[in-house]
Design a protein around this nucleic acid. Structure first.
Lengths: 173, 173
DNA sequence: TCGTATTTGATATGATCCATAACGATTATC
DNA sequence: GATAATCGTTATGGATCATATCAAATACGA
């Protein structure tokens, strides 16, 4: 169990058949040639992102939480008392668009806006008890269903490597 | 030059400082704690995808091509004579939404719809000379600027591994 | 201290993308 | 030849994303 091992790719899992067996999806007629699209990172990135979000929604469908809503609740839990601008900024959400989003969460009593005593312009954001409970259940669903599924498809080492590379792109690109 | 080597991760490039040096972006006040968000694959996936698309647009800005438009032109080149349903389906675009997109490309004389002789309902799609020329220039820009930049940030081996994993998710997830 | 500039949450608005239903023309099926 | 299915299209609504602007509150400079 060396640290060396954990950062290696599991090539046996990644190498797959070159798409000749069992035409299922878009193979009504003869499949189209993808050409250079297969090597375009942005394309695979987008397709993978859609699939992952789709699965996320399935896994937490019982809680009616979108990925964006989940990320907001998470930030509120880890950073209670921050205002709307701060939460929205760190998530890349524009303040005007964050208002309706908060309205939704607040109307479901998952979080609350509290006028700050020091600066009466801003709202201190915090989870309600219901919000904390919902978030806890969401975390459990995501860990046991969503991320577990990714581990099955990729393998733990690959999943960790993928996460690291994506974070690198998001940070340094 | 073993296949083994090419599918290994370059850990020395992936390992980065744990984000303590040079607060630049959203670090107006004290940076917020990201919590479990750092381990949520979908989150990093989305952020990375936005960055990559952003860079794509920059690199081909002289040609005024979006990622979606580029993928359509590419498919038309590799599969001339296919109809709108086929092209749209393989790209995950719904047929109604594909109409306006084609209108745009056709009005710029990058491609043309030709009524099929065998089935007068469908349009055979194909690039114009201008479309082929534009696509060729786009490919060059993407290869020399866009993908080259990704190679710099990730390293060639990591870039290949990333692409493989993303394709795996898009396919098997 | 007063006047100005900035910040915060909010509203209005438009662009873009994504999804569904339905239609006319054409073709396939029985 | 009647019915069903397919193709491109239109219309439409929802969701996301971006910009300008506002009132209230605060910060700041003369």
């Amino acid at each position: 169990m060396t640290a060396h091992k954990t950062t290696q790719l599991d090539a046996s899992r990644l190498a797959r058949l070159p798409r000749e067996v069992a035409m299922d999806d878009d193979a009504e007629a003869s499949a189209l040639k993808m050409g250079e699209l297969s090597d375009l990172l942005g394309y695979s990135l987008k397709r993978a992102q859609l699939k992952v979000f789709e699965d996320f929604l399935r896994c937490v469908s019982s809680l009616q939480l979108t990925p964006a809503q989940f990320s907001v609740l998470l930030l509120m839990e880890k950073n209670p008392g921050r205002n709307q601008t701060e939460i929205a900024n760190t998530l890349g959400i524009l303040r005007p668009n964050f208002v309706a989003m908060l309205d939704g969460l607040e109307s479901r009593e998952l979080c609350m806006r509290v006028r700050s005593a020091h600066d009466r312009r801003s709202h201190n954001l915090m989870l309600t008890d219901k919000g904390r409970a919902t978030l806890a259940r969401a975390k459990k669903l995501i860990a046991t269903k969503h991320e577990a599924r990714l581990n099955e498809v990729l393998g733990p080492a690959n999943r960790a490597a993928l996460l690291e590379m994506l974070a690198t792109i998001a940070r340094d690109f």
